[in-house]
């Protein structure tokens, strides 16, 4: 089931995404990430529960990353699932995004 929730803890926001991120709702993911960046200095996007992602979902992550970088904010992908990693690799973005294995690492 597709879901996107944001947890705000002080200056850190965690956007938890799960399900199949495709054109039908990737705009909701994009909005959640940009909203989180407006509220917190550091944002992690937790992707362990994402079983599928398309180019529109990747675009939402890229936009978040660029937005954060432009404002000097910390942005990372947390526990990206194998399907997400495979598509990032295909887009040659696997070495562009900061990727961490845990929420603690994203918060640090």
């Amino acid at each position: 089931m597709n879901d996107c929730k944001t947890e705000l803890e002080g200056e850190f926001a965690l956007v938890r995404v799960s399900g199949e991120v495709d054109l039908s709702w990737s705009q909701s993911v994009r909005k959640a990430i940009l909203d989180a960046l407006a509220k917190a200095r550091a944002v992690g996007v937790e992707l362990s529960g994402v079983s599928y992602i398309d180019s529109s979902g990747i675009a939402a992550l890229v936009e978040g990353f660029q937005n954060a970088r432009g404002k000097g904010q910390k942005f990372s992908l947390v526990a990206a699932s194998q399907p997400v990693r495979a598509v990032l690799q295909l887009a040659r973005l696997d070495r562009v995004f900061p990727m961490v294995d845990s929420v603690e690492a994203a918060r640090a």
Binding site: D54, S55, I58, A59, A60, V62, E63, F65, Q66, V87, L90, A91, R92, L93, V96
Partner: peptide, 17 residues
């Protein structure tokens, strides 16, 4: 060009690859 890090336009690259 995948050297550009920007949102969008990846679909054709996925097909082509």
């Amino acid at each position: 060009d995948l050297g550009e890090c920007r949102p969008g336009g990846l679909g054709i690259n996925f097909i082509d690859d």
